[in-house]
């Protein structure tokens, strides 16, 4: 822990501290009582079924099937997160710079995907993007392309659908963070002779690091858990880990394997976050400016 945050943490008087500690209580009670506790017995299944021991965890090293699902999921989640963050940042930044009225309209558009349930959304993408779909028909009509573009029922389709679904999360998280930034700082930087790019890179961007971090974590983790959209838009050839787990729990009754994968996911995401906090120096980000 850095010296700055130690002094800072020690600073609040006893009474104040107690109050803030109390503020953690409701969430902790909810989480421990209604999540961790019920989950505990389930996690135990991973070391008791089909027989006691770490047999299920060995599958991580030995089963090509498990490894492939993990690899597919990781690859798609990383790609989705990258694309989403870049596109989302552009929109969030434009929103921050826009007038109040324009911001409302942009926000309205950003919320669009939320109101369309995942089944309808997938159907809409298929209708728009399939080889005889709206887009391909239009493009061929204008003579821009000869052969239809294969945009769905493959991994391109998976990415389109996932980026679309994840963008609102990224944009809103980034925007919420950018709202807290005083734009006069940019003006001041320009006044001190910084070019527009330098002002953005040196002043604005660093201040949005917590937003980027939050959006990355949110989008990446939600992406890991996606499967309806990938299954439909991927033409049934994309098997994500969340579907893999659901299959073991709901159909093949290999609960040991399913719960092992869930536990592994939980631990490895925690690990990734811990690493990120190391590399990105979260202390400084979350602590006093």
């Amino acid at each position: 822990m850095s010296a700055a945050s130690t002094t800072f943490a020690a600073q609040p008087r006893r009474g104040f501290r107690g109050f803030y500690v109390l503020m953690l209580a409701p969430a902790l009670v909810l989480l421990l009582g209604l999540y961790v506790l019920p989950l505990f017995g389930v996690v135990l299944i991973s070391v008791t079924e089909p027989r006691p021991g770490l047999g299920n965890y060995e599958l991580l090293l030995t089963s090509a099937s498990v490894q492939r699902a993990l690899w597919t999921t990781g690859r798609i989640a990383v790609l989705t997160t990258l694309i989403t963050l870049i596109l989302g940042y552009i929109v969030a930044y434009a929103m921050r710079m826009a007038s109040e009225g324009a911001q409302r309209w942009m926000l309205f558009c950003v919320l669009f995907p939320f109101w369309i349930s995942v089944l309808v959304r997938s159907f809409a993408w298929i209708t728009l993007l399939r080889s005889e779909g709206v887009l391909n028909t239009a493009l061929r009509g204008t003579g821009l392309i000869e052969e239809p573009l294969m945009l769905v029922r493959n991994e391109t389709g998976v990415l389109i659908g996932m980026v679309h679904a994840m963008l609102p999360y990224a944009i809103l998280t980034l925007y919420a963070n950018m709202r807290g930034i005083d734009l006069r700082l940019m003006t001041a930087a320009r006044g001190l002779g910084a070019g527009p790019v330098a002002a953005f890179l040196r002043v604005f961007l660093p201040m949005t690091r917590p937003g980027i971090l939050g959006a990355t974590v949110l989008v990446f983790i939600i992406s890991l858990g996606f499967y309806v959209t990938p299954a439909i838009l991927g033409g049934g050839r994309t098997l994500m880990i969340a579907e893999y787990v659901a299959l073991q729990i709901n159909e093949t009754l290999r609960w040991g394997l399913g719960t092992m994968l869930a536990t592994t996911l939980g631990i490895s995401v925690m690990g990734i976050m811990w690493l990120m906090s190391r590399v990105l120096d979260v202390k400084r980000l979350f602590g006093p400016a």
Partner: peptide, 9 residues
């Protein structure tokens, strides 16, 4: 944590 564990579990 609730975001990381597949819902079905």
């Amino acid at each position: 944590l609730p975001l990381m564990i597949p819902t079905i579990v």
